Amino acid sequence: MTEPTQTTDFGYRKVAKDEKAQLVAEVFHSVADKYDLMNDLMSMGIHRIWKRFTVDCSGVRRGHRVLDLGGGTGDLTAKFSRMVGEDGQVVLADINNSMLKVGRSKLRDRGIVGNVAYVQANAEELPFPDNYFDCITISFCLRNVTDKDKALRSMFRVLKPGGRLLVLEFSKPVIEPLSKIYDAYSFHILPRVGEMVVGDADSYRYLAESIRMHPDQATLEGMMQEAGFEQTSFHNLTGGIVALHRGYKF
């Protein structure tokens, strides 16, 4: 008797767990070249404020090791590179090679070299030693991970005692009128913009669906606690459209 295939969410679809990573990869291969432009268009530039707040909450200083997980085109890496200085290190890690290539090219064009390393890695099985990083950030990526609990445990393992994890992710609006406007924008306007700019409406339809399937603020905080993180908290940004979760390893 064959065992039933385990499934997971891919947007609103159910797919086999071992298929999701490839499906997500296809989305980001498609959008990688225009990823930064679409971020500016989708958020009207507000994503830069969300990321700046994340950096300000990181506690990163000179000499630290930082993992920018799912860091894509390197917005956070660029900021952390300046903060850790020549004695520190920032690892820009992403499972998607197309995104990693765009990030590497962009940062090198800006003269950011020396203290930045690039690693293609799966968040569920991070290829780093135990107790290695002072800070880990994962920005607009966790919702695309197949096994989020496994990924959180993997992040906990490679974080130093006293280190912190920051999860910046789309979340659940806490103001009802805003929620309705956000839904209308996500499902009617966003795919059209994706079609016009990238030639790919389906990828942006998936991104909107993946946001709706992501755990809400309290649920994600509970998942972080289950993974071992302590002193967890979250801060809603733009009415809860985005939330920054924090947790520490002691």
Rank of each mutant, 00 (worst) to 15 (best):
E86W: 00
S105R: 14
G88S: 10
L100M: 05
K34D: 14
K34M: 07
M83T: 08
F53S: 11
S43T: 15
S58W: 04
L92E: 09
F53V: 15
G74R: 03
L67R: 02
V31M: 03
F53L: 15
G85C: 06
D40S: 11
V60M: 02
A78F: 15
R52N: 14
T54F: 04
L41Q: 07
R61P: 00
L76V: 13
V55T: 10
M38A: 07
G45Y: 10
G63I: 03
V91P: 07
V31A: 03
V84Y: 07
D36Y: 01
S105C: 04
D56W: 12
M83R: 15
C57R: 15
G72N: 13
K51F: 13
N96E: 06
R61D: 13
M83S: 13
L92I: 11
I95S: 12
L37Y: 02
G70R: 07
I95V: 04
R62S: 14
V90T: 11
R82E: 15
T73A: 13
W50L: 08
D75Y: 11
G70N: 06
M99V: 03
S105Y: 02
M44H: 09
K101H: 10
R52D: 15
G71L: 09
A32Y: 02
L69N: 03
M99F: 08
L107N: 09
R65W: 13
G72Y: 12
K79H: 13
M42D: 04
I95N: 10
R52Y: 10
V84I: 13
V31D: 03
F53E: 14
D36L: 01
R52V: 02
H47G: 05
V55F: 11
D56R: 15
L41A: 12
A32C: 04
I46L: 15
Q89F: 00
H64W: 12
D75I: 08
V66K: 05
G71T: 12
S43M: 09
D56M: 13
T73K: 10
T54E: 11
R48Y: 02
Y35P: 01
K79L: 14
G59S: 03
S81L: 08
H64V: 00
S58K: 04
M38F: 08
V90M: 12
D87R: 12
L67D: 08
G70K: 06
M42K: 00
M99D: 01
A78P: 01
N39Q: 07
R48M: 07
A78S: 14
N97E: 14
G59Q: 03
L107M: 14
R62C: 03
K101F: 00
M44Y: 11
S58I: 04
S58D: 07
V66F: 08
G63N: 04
R82I: 01
